[in-house]
Nucleic acid binder design. Structure first.
Length: 925
RNA sequence: GGGUGUUUAGCUCAGUCGGGAGAGCGUCGGCCUUACAAGCCGAAGGUCGCAGGUUCGACCCCUGCAACACCCACCA
């Protein structure tokens, strides 16, 4: 083994070996356990969020695999319709061509080629993270089998009337020129204006106060060309007489009615609202209530169409806005313009302002599906961790709208619907089936719907589609429902809810029993990591390291907004002046686990990963020590008689506590607690104490004691490796292969060894109590040594005063430990009748630990130290006295609590008295 | 407008059953101590966001408020 920990030397080749050996596939006849990976975009790359969730899934999967479950971690990628199509379209743009120029077939062909080229990147990154997914079962959402499942679902939903086609007002992205679902629209607050226009009253009417016009306020002037009414509140006295009257729509000249509708807020603006039923969701609803005409004034690219007066035709919507405002102003109809903050709907991929637009689209009727899915969570068939996400889920599901699933894209699952020339709709797996199903003549011309399904429609089938549905496969029977879904809260609606609905509908089962929701990974300032902000980190850069220049280049190339490059570069040079060192996969994984506390986002801080890299190094070096003391260098006979020391009994007992806590942490998805316990046990118990206690035994112990120490060193280390393996698989595997043979374990890999289970018989409260006693003395002496600046190398004498029989026995049993770890010259019990020499003092329970001052300790320094301690004890006593003097405390608190406080009080009083006496002694010197 | 989460040491975060708060990093002091200087030993550092309430007792339970973050929503 190398002297220092070098992750790059071990990680890569171990993974290749695991994969080649087929150890990731389900094996054995244990109870099945299954996790489905949230399929990443096939043409994307691994970001911190992926690395985070993949780490958590891998820990769960490795844990269950080691516990003997027949474990499947299903892997695959998503075709990610819009995202992927956008990437390829941008490539075409650079080549001075376009998808229109290529044509549909060639374009789709081109996307497939790009998928083949780039699709390996994310799976390779997944390998580098150590993910123990079953590659032999890798799936893609557009592979033949999965596509069949998608068509099957569509056809069945259509045949049941749960999928329908209709002309509806939908969210339209005029840049991508496709419909979007409500979820794909982000409403962002932006600064805009509120324009006040005068609409002249028709037929010579006047308002009550004598004006000849109404004033409407709008944030969308250009849509006025499609107005078909002006609305007021029915109880608004100002306008009551005008309801039923008409205004003349400026610029257009159309007579439009004044209507009353209680949607109108009389407090806002003037209390008059222009109504454009074809271009606003609220106006559309009102139009339906009042039978208003729908006048569509926009083309697919948001330019104005033939329905508007000639001067505006063909103008972009913003150009039209300027013209409309200018023309109204020129006509004296612009009353005023206010600044106004408003929510602007933008497409989540393109960033374009989305238009409500009337088009023919396909929808899924959600109400019934949602009802079942709500019940599944209410009944606990699906459980969210943390639980509060269930409320979020319920809130959305109870207000659910029908789902627009058609997209005007070319990359995706083509909608399995055909039309005849009269608009008749036929749905089936393919054209032949459609003709047979509907009894259509072979010569009847049919054309397939040009649109594709939204990506989330297919993702919703992920848990059962990947296992072979609609066939009744062995995999489906074994692994469905899956056990846990690990995902971020940002896709609860997009994906989790839809999976629950679709899976219940088609399998009658829930897709998973537990949904573990993790936080989002943010940068050290708490900002969301994103390419456009240039604050993202590539997990592999943390694993392998990257120098500053390369990092700057990576963050500033290919930006959507190149003008940000300078700022990003500056921030990068500030945050990573030395670049990023190579921390290794294990350290990164450990960090993710340690940061994964429940219900909050995680700030990724380089200091944390550096600390956990140090932890890996610590474990590596501990293993080094164990090997040096147990390998062929010494006598390796571990089989003979052993005489365990206190240290051996203690560490085995403590290890049981670790095992118990780690199991509990996995059960409750507290990866942070698990990491904390591993860190604490390995570093502060095994290394700081057990290894140190072992040194004198190995040097001076009897043969039986030495053998016991070697065996315990090895056995506990080996068990540590197994318990830590799900988190830090590489380091543990590398070390385990060196260590295990010494214990006669011959398995080929740690990943198939059993996970440590609790063993009550190893619990040893006596040993734990006695070692606490030993520690108390050692720490007492160390405190004196540290406070008095006595060099570690200089042995000092110690005396124990106020000892009872147990203390004396313990001293004799543990003299070697005390001498060694406290670096003592000698240690003796001070006889009852003997007067103590001037000494620095530490209290250990009722006992006093004394370090004689002669020649070592300065009187004033010791007085200062004593005063500090005295002050602390005085506060203790005061607090406890006050508490016990409180009659209602004594009367009402549980007896054992009162008793405990009394004992604490007595001890504190006793300690204080001893310190006071000691202070007098020292002061009189 | 509605909802959720967060607020604990200089920083990043734990804190289970209500019984006077912990870790890592950083800081300060001492150590090259035969596994590890990516280390060892010791120390300092807290008005648990604010105000009330319940309770013998509150970081913890209740109410209100504030700040920050996020989600949802039709105020033109």
């Amino acid at each position: 083994m190398e002297k220092s920990y070098q992750p790059r030397d071990i990680e890569q080749h171990l993974y290749e070996e695991w994969e080649a050996a087929g150890w990731f596939a389900p094996r054995g006849d244990g109870e099945p356990y299954c996790i489905m990976i949230p399929p990443p975009n096939v043409t994307g790359s691994l970001h911190m969020g992926h690395a985070f969730q993949d780490t958590l899934m891998d820990a769960l999967v490795r844990y269950q695999r080691m516990r003997g479950r027949r474990t499947l971690w299903q892997v695959g990628t998503d075709h990610a319709g819009i995202a992927t199509q956008m990437v390829v379209e941008r490539q075409l743009e650079r080549e001075q061509t376009s998808r229109a120029e290529l044509g549909r077939e060639a374009f789709v062909e081109r996307v497939w080629r790009w998928k083949e080229e780039s699709g390996g990147q994310i799976t390779n990154q997944l390998r580098r993270m150590g993910a123990s997914v079953d590659w032999s079962r890798e799936r893609f959402t557009m592979d033949e089998g999965f596509s069949r499942a998608v068509r099957e679902v569509f056809v069945r939903l259509f045949d049941e009337g749960l999928i329908y086609r209709g002309k509806r007002l939908v969210n339209w992205d005029p840049v991508l020129r496709t419909a979007l679902s409500d979820l794909e629209v982000e409403n962002v607050e932006e600064q805009g204006h509120l324009w006040h226009f005068r609409y002249p009253l028709a037929d010579g009417r006047r308002t009550a106060d004598g004006r000849d016009h109404l004033v409407v306020a709008t944030t969308r002037p250009e849509t006025m060309l499609g107005d078909t009414a002006v609305a007021v509140h029915p109880e608004d006295a100002r306008y009551a007489e005008l309801v039923g009257a008409f205004v003349e729509l400026p610029l257009v000249g159309r007579r439009i009615p004044v209507i009353a509708d209680d949607y109108v807020d009389p407090e806002f603006g003037t209390g008059c609202v222009k109504i454009t039923p074809a271009h606003d969701f609220n106006d559309h609803a009102m139009g339906q209530r009042h039978g208003l005409e729908l006048i569509n004034v926009l083309e697919a690219d948001a330019r104005l169409n033939e329905a508007v007066p000639e001067p505006y035709r063909g103008l972009d919507r913003y150009e039209a806005r300027r013209r409309v405002v200018a023309d109204l102003d020129a006509a004296g109809l612009l009353e005023r313009v206010d600044d106004h903050r408003l929510m602007v709907p933008r497409g989540d991929r393109s960033g374009a302002v989305v238009e409500p637009w009337l088009t023919d689209q396909w929808f899924v009727a959600m109400e019934g599906l949602a009802r079942e899915a709500i019940r599944a969570v209410e009944d606990g068939a699906v459980r969210f961790v943390p639980k509060q996400y269930e409320n979020l889920y319920f809130a959305w599901m109870r207000e659910i709208q029908d789902w627009c699933i058609s997209r005007q894209l070319w990359w995706g699952h083509r909608i399995p619907a055909w039309y005849d020339e009269t608009g008749g709709i036929y749905v089936g797996h393919d054209e032949a089936e459609v003709r047979a199903k509907y009894g259509l003549a072979p010569e009847l011309p049919l054309a397939q719907d040009p649109d594709v399904l939204e990506t989330w429609f297919s993702s919703a089938l992920w848990t059962f589609g990947t296992l072979g549905w609609p066939e009744d496969t062995e995999a489906l029977r074994s692994f469905h429902p899956t056990d846990v879904l690990v995902t971020g809260h940002d896709i609860i609606f997009f994906w989790v809810a839809r999976m629950i609905m679709m899976t219940l509908k088609f399998t009658g089962e829930v897709p998973f029993r537990t949904v573990y929701i993790h936080g989002l990974v943010r940068d050290a300032e708490g900002q969301k990591m994103s390419k456009s902000k240039g604050n993202g980190l590539d997990p592999l850069d943390l694993v392998e390291g990257i120098d500053l220049e390369a990092l700057v280049a990576k963050r500033t190339t290919g930006l959507m907004q190149p003008q940000l490059a300078a700022r990003i570069e500056k921030a990068t040079r500030r945050d990573f002046p030395e670049g990023i060192p190579a921390f290794g996969t294990d350290a990164l994984r450990f960090t993710f686990c340690a940061l994964a506390s429940t219900g909050r986002d995680v700030r990724f801080d380089l200091n944390r990963i550096a600390g956990y890299r140090n932890f890996c190094n610590k474990l590596w070096n501990a293993a080094n020590f164990v090997r040096m003391n147990t390998g062929s260098a010494g006598d390796a006979d571990l089989a003979g008689e052993t005489t365990p020391t206190l240290a051996d009994r203690w560490i085995r007992s403590r290890f049981q506590g670790l095992v118990r806590d780690v199991h509990f942490a996995y059960e409750t998805f507290r990866f942070d607690v698990m990491a904390q316990r591993l860190y604490d046990f390995v570093w502060h118990e095994y290394c700081d104490w057990y290894l140190e206690l072992t040194k004198p035994v190995l040097r001076e112990g009897t043969e039986g004691e030495r053998r016991a120490a070697r065996r315990t060193l090895l056995e506990v280390l080996e068990a540590i490796l197994r318990i830590a393996h799900p988190v830090i698989p590489f380091l543990t595997e590398a070390v385990w292969r060196e260590i295990a043979p010494l214990l006669g374990r011959s398995g080929p890999t740690i990943m198939l060894e059993p996970f440590p289970e609790t063993d009550e018989s190893a619990l040893d409260p006596d040993a734990e109590a006695e070692l606490d006693w030993v520690r108390g003395i050692i720490e007492g002496v160390r405190n004196i040594r540290g406070e008095m600046d006595l060099p570690t190398g200089r042995p000092i004498p110690a005396l124990l005063a106020g000892c009872d029989a147990t203390d004396r026995e313990r001293l004799e049993r543990n003299r070697t430990f005390l001498m060694q770890l406290a670096r003592l010259e000698h240690i003796e019990v001070l006889a009852e009748e003997t007067e103590a020499p001037p000494a620095a003092i530490q209290l250990v329970g009722a006992m006093r630990v004394l370090v004689p001052m002669a020649g070592l300790i300065d009187r004033d320094a010791e007085l200062a130290r004593l005063d500090k301690e005295l002050e602390r004890r005085r506060q203790d006593v005061a607090r406890l006295e006050k508490k016990l003097a409180n009659e209602s405390f004594v009367a009402k608190a549980p007896a054992e609590v009162v008793e405990k406080e009394r004992a604490k009080h007595d001890e504190a009083v006793d300690a204080l008295a001893k310190l006071v006496a000691q202070r007098e002694t020292i002061a009189s010197l």
